[in-house]
Design a protein around this nucleic acid. Structure first.
Lengths: 159, 159
DNA sequence: CGACATTAGTAACATATGTTACTAAATCGG
DNA sequence: CCGATTTAGTAACATATGTTACTAATGTCG
């Protein structure tokens, strides 16, 4: 079945695509595995992943708008909107109409919201430590640098 | 090795969780971005992502069962089942009852299925080359090694 | 053999997520 | 100022994905 592919002059005969060696796929799969693990932590606290992400963004910078959350995470408007509504219903975030712009909701954490975030953050950081423990220090540095470059690479091309 | 960051005994002044620096999140987000890009390629060929994954697995090893696909990808039974049904309807894969075990579907690519796979594989590999072009050779090596370790790490803990 | 547990796959159901269209508020250009 | 355009957010709709329960075929062990 593998026909003898003649090497083109100047062109290399390409490697074939094997899923386990295809980098984008590997990263997606790895992310999927991480998500699964972390989802347990969130679920134990009655949070979905989008809710957790919103919580995390609002925890970092108070008075954020939903649109800021959209800009900083891989979630679209609607997902964020729903997560915010749910977090408000559970009294973890407050939604206040911004005075400057009354279209905007200024989001902030309630006391329980902050406590919840801190609790999950601790577990999440433990998880991260655990993950990264398989890498030596050189690998961590290079891995981090490579991630940064890849992030910049995909961010570059505008949608 | 994961609890040695706190400087004050008893005081938990751990680093705080910042989403953009949280490795699992970064990987998920990066994967999301990649998926988005690649999805265009598949969509141009009228394929969904699960369909593409099934196609890729079957392309590598003929006569695979749906359960093998489940084992090799981050998809559950049902997602694979649907993708296979759809691929069969489009005449890209064949489903034959295995003789040894008549519960099992032996999957294989049709001629058009193979052609489709080859076509997409070329585009996908181009995409990968493009991505990785931002990394120098040392970074690629270390990045690959780190990925392998992380993959092994998450595979280790059984569900 | 023959009840019982296990496995591959699917169907029916529930939920989650994305898409399009809309509303209210703000900004812009005259 | 005032109509036209943009923006933040949501609602209504469509689709996709996961969950549970079921069927058919094997395997197991008395």
């Amino acid at each position: 079945m593998s026909s003898t592919v003649a090497k083109e002059p100047g062109g290399d005969d390409r490697r074939s695509l094997i899923l386990e060696r295809f980098t984008p796929y590997r990263i997606v799969a790895l992310g999927h595995a991480f998500s699964g693990r972390l989802a347990r932590v969130y679920a134990d606290q009655n949070l979905t992943i989008p809710e957790w992400r919103v919580l995390a963004v609002v925890a970092q910078a108070s008075k954020v708008a939903a649109r800021d959350v959209v800009a900083r995470t891989p979630m679209d408007k609607m997902t964020v909107s729903r997560a915010v509504a749910s977090l408000e219903a559970k009294a973890f975030v407050l939604r206040a109409v911004s005075e400057n712009d009354r279209r905007v909701n200024a989001l902030s954490l309630t006391k329980t919201g902050r406590a919840l975030f801190d609790r999950i953050a601790t577990l999440a950081l433990d998880f991260e430590d655990d993950l990264l423990s398989v890498l030596d220090s050189e690998e961590r540095v290079v891995f981090d640098r490579a991630l940064k470059k890849l992030e910049a690479g995909v961010a570059g091309v505008s949608d």
